[in-house]
Design a protein around this nucleic acid. Sequence first.
DNA 1: CCAGCTTTGTCCTTTGAGTGGAGAAAGTTC
DNA 2: GAACTTTCTCCACTCAAAGGACAAAGCTGG
Lengths: 395, 395
Amino acid sequence: MRMSARPQNVHQARLLRLLRDEGPRSRAELGDVVRLSRSKLAVELDRLVELGLVEGAGLAASRGGRRSGIVRLSPSLRFVAFDIGATSIDVAVTDGALEVLGHVSEQCDVRQGATVVLERALDLLGKLRDEGLIPQVHGTGIGVPGPVSFRDGMPVVPPIMPGWDRFPVRDAIGQELGCPVLVDNDVNLMALGELHAGLARSVDDFLLVKIGTGIGCGIVVDGAIYRGVSGSAGDIGHIRVDDDGPICACGNAGCLEAYFGGAALARDAEAAARSGASPALAALLETHGRLSAEHVGEAAAAGDPTAVRLVREGGRHVGQVLAGLVSFFNPGLVIIAGGVAGLGHTLLAEIRGVVYRRSAPLATGNLPIVLSELAGAAGVVGGARLISDHVFSAS
Amino acid sequence: MRMSARPQNVHQARLLRLLRDEGPRSRAELGDVVRLSRSKLAVELDRLVELGLVEGAGLAASRGGRRSGIVRLSPSLRFVAFDIGATSIDVAVTDGALEVLGHVSEQCDVRQGATVVLERALDLLGKLRDEGLIPQVHGTGIGVPGPVSFRDGMPVVPPIMPGWDRFPVRDAIGQELGCPVLVDNDVNLMALGELHAGLARSVDDFLLVKIGTGIGCGIVVDGAIYRGVSGSAGDIGHIRVDDDGPICACGNAGCLEAYFGGAALARDAEAAARSGASPALAALLETHGRLSAEHVGEAAAAGDPTAVRLVREGGRHVGQVLAGLVSFFNPGLVIIAGGVAGLGHTLLAEIRGVVYRRSAPLATGNLPIVLSELAGAAGVVGGARLISDHVFSAS
DNA sequence: CCAGCTTTGTCCTTTGAGTGGAGAAAGTTC
DNA sequence: GAACTTTCTCCACTCAAAGGACAAAGCTGG
């Protein structure tokens, strides 16, 4: 397979990102935006057309004189994103503007190990390929549920991914698909997804808190993911809430995750069901055999006081940790995402209450705290964005 | 006064910063470091000489052929730094390499208001000027003990600085001195000082925790200060440690500062002295009429068990908060600074113990936690660095 | 439908910055 | 002191970018 094209300089990279984020534009409009002479702009656009990255698309409406030619990203551009979760695999294909063209998902336990899980992921991609959606892959972004050495493109000592430690995910998939590949933490990708298509589009510095099986945080500084010196930045699940809280799997007591991870919430819900404190939860336990965060959400929505209390308490603990992080980081936006985000407004109200009360006033002065609107798509859109930023940059 | 010169392009800016940080260099050595043709390097250096920013300084040792000419920053370059603390003013003058040439300091209550305090600061600068240290001021960096709108160059709703809110510090001093001025939070400047001359020289991402009257944190991301969206990032004094802790001046209970700010430590020490729990502290209270963090340090160094306990407990609380921030931010270094840093190894040992036990293992794997070695100079060196980075950048 | 104006696209000349070679100057080594 | 090395300066050459001229395309109003 021919090596897929890359822009040759910063101007071309800039133009590609502009077309990706703002959609098709006339050459004249592009000239208004970028600081280039008409001649040079024409040259760079012609080169992008030659490279097959851009193509003409008819004429724009007149602005009072000759009509200008519209250019757009080549419709055959394709990015692939794998979002590997603790218990699921999501695979999506997007066009150059990162619109999702196809998205398949299946349950899969990440603990089966890298070889098995990546094989399944490639199988899923095969499905999309069979639908004829993928003429050519220009890049692939992969999210995994654990710490990643971004530089090396591999997980490092991931706690919930046995058999993945230092597995060369980037190089293996790169070999397989013959395209550029980047690997990152799944929460970071969700943050990138929100940055691209969600509520964070116009925010430079924000936090995305994902509450799922575990609890993690994506940090965006100046429009880019901040990963820290060893790639573990945002690992907030084991921040201390109290000294005398529940014992956590990590060995310490009172970690946030021990209070309100998916596992902790299920544990508390089952306890409430068994103790008879909550008839609603007891009924759900009877039906399903076990309880999860979704069931608590159901019961809370139905007005079960115990379920509501569980959500409130969880929100309070998240809020306590988040209040500290908001004081420290002074973000312009906080997004709450993950399975538990389905708990909705009860959760959000509680988090907001604690954060607005406990954070530095200057930091909360104009701080929206919102639920993610992208739901399942955030991860894959973020994966596409990650690799697209890479491919659409001057080599 | 003639507007002082600025570099004309990125190459000149790069060369100036190189000479600032690495010291005088021969033209040939510079050629090895920067990626420029010999001719262009010569042109740019000649221009810098013309601008008066750089000058020749004899010949370097031969490297096997003709000796190369050494260039250095002009010795008449001067940066001024004001470090305005809660109870003190520090003024320093540095050369182009940010070596402190003169440093004066005096007690001064910041609550006297902007006009009075800045007047005093300019008086102090006058002293240094009288010593003939300041042929010309190329830039001034100012640190103030509260949140700052960096863009506007003024404090915003600073809690301990009545009369300073939105006072145009940058413009007022700029008018007075006729040079570029930048204003920032004093903790941020200390972090910049450590980045330039301290232990953080080779670290891109680190935290500086200052424990003084209040408790604050300077955040360096990718070699630059991170200020957050409203300039209040790093305001960690009011992060919650416990729900049932001491009441804080901010109205909440259990803030870090209420446990271990300078005021809290003095409060606890005086209580211990009065209750008879600590004879050593009682004696110091007798002598001085009141107690401060330094006295606790003295008593602890002398082996007083109560004083040692106070330091340990304080360290533990700082550690608890810091552990969370380390998990979140994954820094490459943590520096403890401020008056309380004089408490030394007892404090540091306690902080380390808690952080290494409670932070994510990946984040602490290779994380030095150290005491600042710059002591009082960090602030003014940081101020000089701030404005120097600005002046030594392409306009 | 046509003349005159505006906008857009293309070509071509001009400009200017940067490169790299030649050669002189200055040192070292044997 | 001869031969080689390194450094510096000067200069011719290359190449990218700017911007003007002109052609093409479209609108407006009579």
